[in-house]
Amino acid sequence: MGSAEYGAAGERNTYGNQAGRDPLEDRYDMKERIKRLEDWMTNIDTQMADHHAQIADLQDRVEILTTDIEGYHSIRHRSTDVHRRDVLRNVTEQGSIKINKGNIAADEGDAITDAMLYATHQRDDEDVLISLYGLTADQILFLSMCQFI
């Protein structure tokens, strides 16, 4: 065994031979590794929570888009079956049902999509939008963003 001397074991000054300081250094190293691992796991947990929030937001948006596209398809079916009814004069019972569903889809309000028409300057008669929904395009779009938060 070597002679005793002062030396470092991690951040501590100790007195003893190297064989006595080695376990203290190992203990210090292990504590440091555990701390880094805990920090890393906390970071992963935070990232996972962020990803779960993003996934939930995307699922909400997909649901909205799915509803929008179903309405759009109903309107397109209506257009085709109205042509069949009015021009070809041979609409089927199923075609009549599609015309009615398309009428409902076309006449239902969609405040967010309607507001986008004004926000993108495709329409400039905002008084009609206000009369229809009681809100300006900016108010509608602001409220629609609040539902995703």
Rank of each mutant, 00 (worst) to 15 (best):
S3N: 08
R84E: 10
D29M: 10
R84H: 08
D138V: 09
A53L: 05
G2V: 10
E5R: 14
I69P: 01
Q147D: 14
A105T: 11
Q47N: 15
T92A: 09
G109P: 06
G20W: 06
A111V: 08
D22E: 13
M30E: 09
D138K: 13
R76C: 08
Q18T: 05
Q94P: 01
Y118W: 13
T80K: 12
I55C: 01
E38S: 05
D107V: 01
Y118V: 06
F142M: 11
H73P: 00
A9P: 02
D138A: 03
G134R: 03
Y28T: 02
K98P: 03
H77F: 15
D45P: 04
T92Q: 04
G2R: 09
D138H: 10
G7V: 00
H73Q: 05
E70W: 05
R78T: 05
D39S: 02
T120R: 15
Y133S: 00
I97Y: 10
V87R: 11
L132T: 15
A137W: 10
D57Y: 09
V62R: 05
F148E: 13
I112C: 08
D68R: 12
D86A: 00
D57I: 12
T136H: 09
D127H: 10
Q18L: 14
R84T: 06
I149V: 08
M145H: 12
R61D: 09
G16S: 12
A137D: 07
A53S: 04
H52P: 01
Y118T: 10
L24F: 03
T120M: 14
I44A: 07
R21D: 05
A137G: 03
H77S: 06
I34Y: 02
G2D: 12
V87T: 12
I44D: 03
R76D: 15
G2H: 13
Q122D: 04
I140L: 02
N90A: 07
T67D: 15
Y15L: 02
T136Y: 09
D50P: 01
R27V: 09
Q18A: 04
V128F: 05
I97N: 03
C146H: 07
V82S: 01
Y6M: 09
H83D: 07
E38Y: 11
D60M: 15
A106Q: 06
Q147V: 05
I104W: 08
